[in-house]
Amino acid sequence: MQIQLRHWLISLFMIGGLILGGCATPQAASSDSTNLATETTTTPATTASSPMSNLPRLEGKATVVMTVNGSPITIEVDGTHAPVTAGNFVDLVQRGTYDGLVFHRVVREPQPFVVQGGDPQGKDPNFPTERLGTGSFIDPATNQARYVPLEITPKGADKPVIGQTLKSARVSAVPELRHTRGAVAMARSSMPDSASSQFYFALADLPFLDGDYAVFGNVTQGMDVVDKIQQGDRIESAKVTKGAENLKK
């Protein structure tokens, strides 16, 4: 009973960090080690003025190999259950957006949680490290930040729930893509449709995040590499090795 209570309290603390992070200042968001949120100061680009049809989609699956500390991490990206989220990630990989970026948040205590990176500001070695975790991908075609909607497919459903958590949508089913160890998912602020380029690896099964954050893939090889990532390590390269033809822009 004491072990279950401790686990529940830790989970509650982590969820609280996620919720609070979306409303915090950039400095506060960066200092909260359990916060998956990213700071957004503009309206997400999935409003009526910029519909989802303008976003890349992945129709099927793709394989991405990310190299960190000289070793490969193989990610299966699932466009079947998260076509827009997966399409955004694969498009950013193809653009070279992730090459050279920093893992700015690594949380292993009090229990394994996440390794988070993908802030484009991290490519600048002079950018203050305490502000990493606040940036988004700026689309050169529009000179505006690109945001993707929260996209979660309930188990057994034909299409994803868009723009809402499963709880908000009153869906009781678990997601098709869950926060199991090795899951790859998008970080966001408190606004559901605010994910852009920042992502995280789940270091353990994190069922309390299911239905709130969009999982779009899974590490199939190289989880031992993920386990060794330290805060400040950089993504040396990220390449699409299979399924590039499934990306539709």
Rank of each mutant, 00 (worst) to 15 (best):
M1Y: 10
Q2R: 13
I3E: 00
L5C: 09
L9S: 08
S11V: 12
F13Y: 03
L18K: 00
L18D: 14
I19T: 00
G21V: 00
G21A: 00
G22K: 07
G22I: 03
A24C: 09
P26E: 08
Q27I: 14
S30V: 02
S33N: 08
L36D: 10
T38I: 02
T42Q: 08
T42I: 10
T43W: 03
P44G: 07
P44V: 04
A45V: 15
A45Q: 06
T46R: 05
T47I: 11
P51E: 04
R57C: 10
L58R: 15
L58H: 14
V64P: 15
V65Y: 14
M66D: 12
V68P: 15
P72E: 07
P72V: 15
T74N: 02
E76I: 14
D78R: 12
G79N: 10
G79L: 04
T80W: 01
T85K: 14
A86M: 05
A86H: 03
N88V: 15
F89K: 02
F89Y: 01
D91T: 12
D91F: 00
V93Q: 10
V93T: 03
R95D: 13
R95S: 14
G96F: 06
Y98K: 13
L101G: 01
V102Q: 08
V102K: 04
F103C: 06
H104V: 03
V106W: 01
E109L: 14
P110N: 05
P110K: 01
F113C: 03
V114W: 11
V114L: 12
G118I: 11
Q121E: 10
G122H: 07
K123G: 11
D124R: 10
F127T: 13
P128Q: 04
P128I: 00
R131M: 10
G133E: 06
S136R: 01
F137Y: 04
I138E: 03
D139Y: 04
P140Y: 00
T142Y: 00
N143W: 09
R146M: 12
Y147F: 00
L150H: 11
L150V: 11
L150P: 09
E151I: 03
T153K: 05
P154S: 14
G156T: 01
G156Q: 11
G156P: 11
A157M: 01
K159I: 10
K159G: 13
G163D: 04
Q164I: 11
Q164A: 14
L166M: 01
S168P: 13
A173G: 12
P175V: 05
E176D: 05
E176M: 01
R178N: 08
H179Y: 15
H179W: 13
T180I: 08
R181A: 13
A183T: 00
A183S: 07
A183G: 01
A187I: 15
R188K: 07
S189T: 05
S190P: 13
S190H: 09
S190I: 13
P192H: 07
D193V: 02
D193G: 05
D193N: 06
S196E: 12
Q198P: 15
A202W: 14
A204S: 11
P207W: 00
F208E: 05
G211E: 15
G211R: 14
Y213V: 02
F216T: 04
T220G: 13
T220M: 13
Q221K: 10
M223K: 07
D224Y: 01
V225D: 04
D227A: 09
K228Y: 06
K228L: 06
G232L: 07
R234C: 11
E236L: 02
A238M: 08
V240Q: 12
K242L: 12
G243C: 09
E245L: 13
N246T: 11
